[in-house]
Design a protein around this nucleic acid. Structure first.
Lengths: 103, 103
DNA sequence: CAACTAAGACTCTCTTAGCGA
DNA sequence: TCGCTAAGAGAGTCTTAGTTG
């Protein structure tokens, strides 16, 4: 597999229930190229640059890092981040024994 | 900013304490190009493809998705994933009210 | 309408060959 | 040694123009 982005993009699109063209249009692409480009991304024919990936992430309501998670468990972990209230994240990380200050 | 990868790459490299050249070599690059390429990535002159990003992630012991986390809090969340024992992740997600099966 | 594909135009990365701290 | 840069060759994406289910 050239990249995981195609797989995650399709996952996220089907979850919301949009067509390939609609995702592209919602991400700001011209309707004349939207369908083709999303299809190329999902089938790993081409890989979008990060600026485009960010627009796709907004359109599909996932963090952009989700598209680059190779491990399915990590992908779910990243989705969890978006669903958990910000105030609870620190608590979870503290309970897990992670010091958030030291990156 | 063209991408966040440069920022995260430098963060992860300095944390481990390696030179730009060493990171490239550890990621499997020829020593004649390693220094130049890592420098170009860190300064956002160029952006590596995902296959290269995965090699960099291995060399720096972070999940590859870390390089694509725009939000600092999400970046820390992804690092936490790598530090938490696999058996504990499910517990944390269950406690947070996330159903891991439904992606 | 929705998913998909080939191929040329166009854009960007990777390598080479360097400079300066 | 380390960090950094310009520029051409080479590799990739994006657009156009379609086909198929």
């Amino acid at each position: 597999m050239a990249s995981v982005l195609g797989k995650r993009l399709k996952e996220a699109r089907l979850r919301i229930g949009l067509s390939q063209a609609q995702v592209g249009i919602n991400a700001g692409m011209d309707q004349s190229v939207a369908s083709t480009r999303i299809n190329q991304y999902e089938r790993d024919v081409h890989v979008p640059g990060f600026a485009v990936a960010e627009q796709l992430a907004k359109a599909l309501k996932v963090p952009s890092a989700y598209f680059y998670a190779v491990d399915d468990q990590l992908a779910a972990w990243i989705l969890a981040y978006a669903k958990i209230p910000a105030s609870d994240r620190r608590t979870i990380m503290e309970e897990a024994g992670i010091a958030p200050r030291r990156l």
